[in-house]
Nucleic acid binder design. Structure first.
Length: 639
RNA sequence: GCUCACGUAGCUCAGUCGGUAGAGCGCGUCCUUGGUAAGGACGAGGUCACCAGUUCAAUCCUGGUCGUGAGCUCCA
């Protein structure tokens, strides 16, 4: 074991005992080992160790450990389902990011009452504490077994296993499943679990296949962690941007106008304006120029760009204008290329960095639309950088730096960097030649290396025209969101025949970088609402200060105070309604206004206001000027 | 797009085993001028998503359409 002296044990000793022997187990009762790793390969604790090697415990609290216990929980659930619904056919039941699921072929969907019954049946399986027994069998035997059990999906899975693969079964009581493992050693070790929801899901994710019924659940190594997780789910519901969008009067969507189209109400529009102004200012500072381009263009343009061939299913049908066909733009890039080509470019002109808050329209299947996060019309914070090949790496670094700065400004602290590359098995899905793709990929990698950024490679995640750096940001609840994306593109410059005149007086091909930092104003705003739970920091808050008189007698004074704040560039308003102060405070608090200033006769006479902050509550009286300065400083610091 | 569920006042939701509807909040008017999270009274407001069908009669039953939600798949 790492960090321990070599131990000699008899061949055939179970892994768990070996671990115990070196006292790695039981040291931390909250996080006992759920499995082991022998020379890096995961094995069950009760599997015997036949030969020497490095043996490490896999703790329940580790990602791998949770995956194992969730996987076992999925088996427990499947056993419970089989008891209640003997005709249910098993499909697959893996562990996923925050839990597990299992797909079943049954004649009707599971109801919430079914889930309760299944959960109760799971408790019995857990109480019975069946040992999970691993068994390795030849393919023919596995086929015979699952055919005999009338489990057609399992049969299909066995058939599809590659030649020479180890086929293992796990049994618990009278339940048997095809599974690579590892698993907990007995069902009694599944301590804290909860079934969450049922939903339809296609066999193997393909809509041509039969629809199965999926049950989602989650499991943790302790009740406390499960409770925490369930609380987080509640919290996520409480923060839902669709709910907050309504409560805070930020945006709406209208059936009459069409689904997936966003109406930005004054308060939402104000937040957007602040974000956009900040965005423009920061881009100018970093050497970007800002441009505008049309919303429609002739079909010919989309044929040159390749969108017509590669992106058609996401574009709206052409509309006839005179004798021409025009299309609503799904992307801004061809327009920026038009502008590039409007004159002869010299190597001295490059790089050109052109940003646009460009509104695009994409057809999305109705089932995927979701609040602000998935819509049919949206404004991208798009930019295209045209540069020489030798500038590519530096430009990407510049973009990475900008991304970091923007994410920080909006309070996103953690992020993960992904390199999205082609699906190696399906290369014909992508435009452009092999060497062009490789060059683009190399440029992205070089920039990330220069930035000493660690990243994970996602195969098959690339767009049709080039590999990308995709940054996933984590919000206040630890949930991942699609953040900035950066793509190197050698393909469009080629298609459009873009050139610049080099030092040598000859024509050269520029490289193009597509990048977006926020993604789209819609999606970014949706994420931001949830990240801040609607309580925007002062610099973003649509109303920063609400001044509330105790009685009508202080109204004129309140108005004066409000004018002072407004004159200082702050967003302040007076609650003139004939209501008691408690009521006004409640409303302001529910509207998540950062500063509430209460004014009674005491404050009016002393030229003060009583400060009540959204976070801390009543903070006592202070001079108007002091409060004004405080709010101003907070806004300027973007805290 | 597909599967399932849902669609009743601006919002959250009751209700009608088929006889055209109700609460709370919000909104309006009035009373109240009250010191840190809901003062009171009165009032207005609904083609029960839309279109067909069954029925003496449909908000309720049936079918379709649109929309919403949870997923599948996809993505900024």
């Amino acid at each position: 074991m790492p960090g321990h002296a070599a131990q000699a044990v008899a061949p055939g000793t179970p892994a768990g005992q070996v671990l115990k022997a070196v006292e790695a187990l039981g040291g931390n009762g909250d996080a006992p080992a759920v499995a082991a790793k022998l020379n890096g390969a995961l094995i069950d604790l009760n599997r015997s160790v036949q030969a020497g090697g490095t043996l490490e415990p896999v703790l329940a609290s580790s990602d791998e450990g949770r995956e194992i216990l969730r996987h076992t929980a999925a088996h427990v659930m499947a056993q419970a389902v089989k008891e209640l619904f003997p005709k249910a056919k098993l499909a697959i039941g893996p562990a996923i990011a925050d839990g597990f699921y299992y797909d079943f072929d049954v004649d009707r969907p599971f109801t919430p009452e079914d889930l309760e019954k299944i959960e109760a049946a799971m408790a019995k399986v857990v109480a019975a504490n069946y040992p999970l027994v691993r068994e390795e069998v030849p393919r023919a035997e596995a086929l015979r077994l699952f055919e005999g059990l009338n489990e057609p999906y399992k049969v299909e899975l066995v058939r599809d296993l590659p030649e020479g693969a180890t086929i293992s079964l796990y049994r618990q009581g009278d339940y048997v499943d095809l599974c690579a493992g590892p698993h907990l050693t007995s069902t009694g070790k599944v301590k804290a679990y909860k079934l969450l929801s049922g939903a339809g899901a296609y066999w193997r994710g393909d809509e041509k296949n039969p629809m199965l019924q999926r049950i989602y659940g989650t499991a943790f190594e302790s009740k406390e962690l499960l409770e925490d997780h369930l609380f987080k789910l509640e919290e996520a519901k409480r923060r839902d941007h669709r709910r907050l969008g309504k409560d805070l009067d930020l945006f709406s969507i209208h059936e009459e106008a069409g689904t997936g189209l966003i109406f930005w109400h004054p308060k939402g529009a104000l937040v957007r304006e602040i974000i956009e102004n900040f965005w423009r200012q920061e881009h100018r500072r970093r050497g970007y120029d800002i441009v505008y381009s049309p919303h429609i263009a002739r079909v010919e343009l989309w044929k040159i760009s390749g969108h017509w061939d590669w992106y058609k299913e996401n574009m709206y049908s052409p509309m006839a204008v005179d004798e021409q066909e025009f299309m609503l733009k799904p992307m801004n890039c061809p327009f920026h290329i038009m502008m590039y080509k409007d004159q002869l470019r010299s190597y001295r002109d490059l790089p050109l960095r052109w940003g646009e808050l460009g509104t695009v329209y994409r057809y999305e299947r109705s089932g995927v639309l979701h609040g602000l996060l998935r819509v049919r019309g949206f404004t991208q914070d798009d930019a295209h950088i045209f540069c020489r090949p030798d500038q590519l790496s530096d430009e990407i670094m510049g973009v990475l730096d900008l991304c970091k700065f923007m994410m920080q400004s909006f309070g996103y602290k953690d992020y993960e960097v992904h390199l999205s590359v082609r699906d190696p098995l399906n290369k014909q899905k992508y435009a452009g030649t092999e060497d062009v793709w490789q060059a683009a990929e190399a440029a992205l990698v070089a920039a990330m290396d220069a930035h000493q950024m660690s990243y994970v490679v996602d195969e098959g995640e690339a767009k049709f025209y080039g590999p990308a750096i995709d940054i996933k940001v984590k919000d206040a609840l630890g949930r991942g969101w699609q953040g900035p994306t950066i793509q190197a593109d050698f393909n469009l410059p080629e298609r459009f025949g873009m050139t610049y005149i080099g030092e040598d007086g000859k024509e050269h091909r520029p490289v193009m970088i597509h990048r977006t930092v926020l993604g789209s104003m819609e999606r970014f705003f949706g994420g931001l609402i949830e990240h801040y739970a609607g309580a925007f920091p002062v610099w973003l808050a649509p109303v920063q200060v609400r001044i509330m008189p105790i009685t009508d007698g202080q109204l004129p004074y309140c108005q004066e105070v409000a004018e002072k704040f407004c004159a200082a560039g702050l967003r302040a308003e007076v609650d003139k309604r004939n209501e008691k102060i408690g009521f006004k405070i409640r409303e302001a608090q529910l509207q998540k206004i950062p500063y509430m200033l209460v004014v009674g006769n005491r404050e009016m006479e002393s030229g003060q206001v009583a400060v009540r902050s959204r976070e801390k509550g009543d903070e006592g009286a202070a001079a108007v000027e002091d409060v004004l300065r405080r709010v101003q400083e907070e806004a300027a610091a973007r805290r």
